[in-house]
Design a protein around this nucleic acid. Structure first.
Lengths: 269, 269
DNA sequence: TCGGTCTATATCGCTAGGCGATACAGATGT
DNA sequence: ACATCTGTATCGCCTAGCGATATAGACCGA
């Protein structure tokens, strides 16, 4: 079992391939490394902690952090001690969402879907082995942090992830299964390759995927893949509901057609 | 009238004060400048456009962009041409939201508020002359992009902004009014200093502020300030509804007490 | 097929940007 | 009072990375 908060990857290490690339700017990487130090944090960090977590020397960290603070990308925690990420980062969030053509296409469709489905609706974007939530429309009860933009979940054990795998070749699916850190979130999380493969086949058949309590207890989720111009899956639409209100069967029967239609409207294939 | 999309400030220029600061790292600033080039964009950008918008030399831009691309902070638009911000930025969004103590305190309160108020609820954070939306909980009908995290609106003409000004000294209010770019969003946007001052006084009296159709036509919004440990306003809770469903009076009478209570629960004063 | 004008990528020499080491100064704690 | 955190500052040496320039592929209209 692991916390849902740690689904994000670490920073891509600049070493190996990148090092020899003549066009690789270390200073940029350092900046990113410093900012990424917060990925591992659960509370405000001191300079030394940032230096340790980022792998950047203490002196350099000091000056980079000071600069980032000047620019609004790092702040001091008001209950003073330690640094936290700064509000300027949200400007880039907006840029990302605004300029991402898929998000732009998806928004009206999701709003329309939301009108017909009074459950939580999410749009998640594929990034390697994970799905990153880009747009979230809550329903009634939600469990807090799980509902934040930027949150990510693994492909292998989520409804959207399986729907996406179903739209890939078998080789790609195997690669994802093999590379994933398949630690379970709940007792029901499927981690066996065989079980995952089976679920993917089901999804390929049905055109959508379902996951029951695999990430959050009491949650039933339904995912449909969104394909890009080349036919490759890029993202997924999720509909999530509570088992307190719905039987999984009934939930699926009711909402799957709507979700499929929405995903098709967003797809470019 | 201006578009609601351009409420964000430009990048803080590294020149002036910063230049002489011995601890200021240019490379960090350059990185930020390149990423901030997208603030002015409404479509994918080419290298030359980025170079022009960021004020960074063409060669440097090329290498910085290449590096950022390596790291996932910049991507190519799939309908290929031009660069867009990359998905890795969302990881930092999550870090910001997770580690911001105010957001953390606010989330459960906002969810609770949402349970009682079936209208749109927002949490916005004060950043100079603007309010940046950090958490958004939609209701039924929404007008699309206006509902994204990272979006920002001016302090001077919003319900939350006025509630925040009401919690400041008169000098600070004057400063905000003076420095703000007071272009109207709608025909009803109040831009006269006198009118704004009056609204602020009303808000100081009532403990909350109301704005009707000042940012979006057909929208009534209600804002309450959230104070930090030092008593200074840091953020605001918004409740927004449609004039198609609500009379402004009725809307206020009904929801203001709940919003005030929520803001107080989040405040640290 | 040719120039013209975009795009991005690559090479290279020179220099100033910024790293590491080290020292310093407040807080906090035992 | 001492130890151990915190963040800040100084300085000399070296290399990272800038600007200028060249290359090369796409696309367009003639």
């Amino acid at each position: 079992m692991r916390s849902i908060l740690h689904a994000q990857d670490g920073v891509r290490q600049p070493s190996e391939e990148a090092e020899q690339d003549p066009l690789f700017v270390q200073a940029v990487a350092r900046t990113v490394q410093v900012l990424s130090a917060f990925h591992t944090a659960s509370k405000p960090m001191s300079l030394n902690e940032i230096a340790a977590a980022s792998g950047v020397g203490k002196s350099a960290t000091q000056r980079v952090v000071a600069t980032l603070r000047h620019l609004g990308y790092v702040e001091r925690d008001p209950d003073d001690n330690g640094y936290v990420p700064g509000i300027r980062l949200l400007d880039h969030t907006l840029d990302y969402l605004r300029l991402n053509p898929l998000v732009a296409r998806a928004s009206p469709v999701l709003l329309e879907l939301r009108r017909n489905v009074r459950e939580r609706i999410d749009l998640s974007l594929l990034d390697g082995l994970r799905l990153v939530y880009a747009a979230r429309m809550q329903s009634k009860r939600e469990t807090f942090f799980a509902t934040l933009v930027g949150h990510s979940v693994p492909v292998f054990c989520t409804s959207g992830g399986r729907a996406i795998m179903a739209a890939m070749s078998d080789e790609e699916v195997e690669e994802i299964i093999a590379k994933s850190d398949r630690r379970p979130f709940t007792a029901k999380t499927l981690i066996e390759p065989a079980a995952i493969r089976e679920k993917v086949l089901e999804a390929r058949e049905a055109g959508y995927a379902v996951a029951v309590e695999e990430v959050l207890p009491g949650e039933v989720a339904l995912g449909v893949a969104i394909r890009g111009p080349d036919g490759r899956p890029q993202a997924a639409v999720h509909v999530a509901g509570s088992l307190g209100e719905w039987e999984a069967e009934e939930f699926t029967r009711r909402f799957a057609p709507l979700a499929v239609e929405a995903a098709r409207a967003i797809s470019r294939f």
